[in-house]
Design a protein around this nucleic acid. Structure first.
Lengths: 154, 154
DNA sequence: CCTGAAAATCGTGAGAT
DNA sequence: ATCTCACGATTTTCAGG
């Protein structure tokens, strides 16, 4: 999967605004509209572009609280780890879940309406499992930047 | 900005796949295509939907390394904080930047090609500023989930 | 692989309920 | 607020280079 300079420009534009008309994209990169169309179709077919989604403002949607949570497990037995990964991934309030190195084993990013909702979640996700040794909640005071954009160049 | 059950369903669908034709959305929520069109236009005009973007697979794009970094500042003077916030936000390798409570002041999520790139970034972002007291790098071994979807219900 | 034009699909706005 | 219908724009396909 080699990316040429057209791909890099197109993916950059699509990561900013995927609603840009292909005709306009074609002007921006000096290609025909159908060439742009073919390339985009291929990004999607190959899984390079995994999805195209609307980004919703959490505050305007009435869910203003973001939390980062570090989680430490008791046992690293593979089957137990998999069960926990599954649980974290399946939780809709978990926006991001990372399996990490260091003192803790997981880093989770939550979006919730209020701390009451978070308190309920901690019970479901952490206390109901005997395999969670500890977790540390970090309150986000301000989100400076939130994107999934992969920086591409050259 | 009150969301009714149509809004919640539509936003849920759009956060999963914004390329879904409005005609198909209209069938899913039992509304006409033009009603769907009008609602979507309003989400965008009001800023509820801030953008619609293509999500790129970092691994397939040749940038497989994700890092979480906790940063502690020396001084919390407002002008110095603002300068740092600006710097973090402007960095294209920083996917997410949170100003947080706790021992550290910032939590950053990086995407890089390799550790060489990250090492360069630490110099530019952390060592070149006299106001960074410490930072701790957490290597992500596995990304279980990565989205910006805001969970909506009721 | 590209271009350019034709064909199919989609988004959009007007008018009516 | 909503729907239907018609128009214009966009996406998609296909022939030819």
């Amino acid at each position: 999967m080699e990316l040429d300079s057209y791909d890099i420009k197109l993916l950059g534009l699509l990561q900013k605004n995927s609603k840009t008309p292909q005709r306009q994209l074609s002007e921006a990169v000096n290609l025909s509209a159908s060439a742009v169309n073919r390339r985009i179709a291929q990004y999607e077919a190959s899984g390079l572009i995994t999805a195209t989604v609307a980004v919703v403002d959490p505050v305007k949607a009435g869910r203003p609280i973001t939390l980062a949570v570090e989680v430490k497990v008791e046992s690293e037995r593979l089957d137990l780890l998999d069960e926990i990964k599954q649980r974290f991934s399946a939780c809709s309030q978990v926006q991001q879940a990372y399996y990490i190195t260091g003192d803790f084993d997981f880093l989770l990013i939550f979006n919730v309406q209020d701390m009451v909702e978070y308190e309920k979640l901690t019970r479901e996700l952490f206390f109901s499992s005997s395999n969670i040794k500890a977790f540390r909640t970090i309150v986000v005071m301000q989100t400076l930047k939130a994107s999934l954009a992969v920086p591409l160049s050259l």
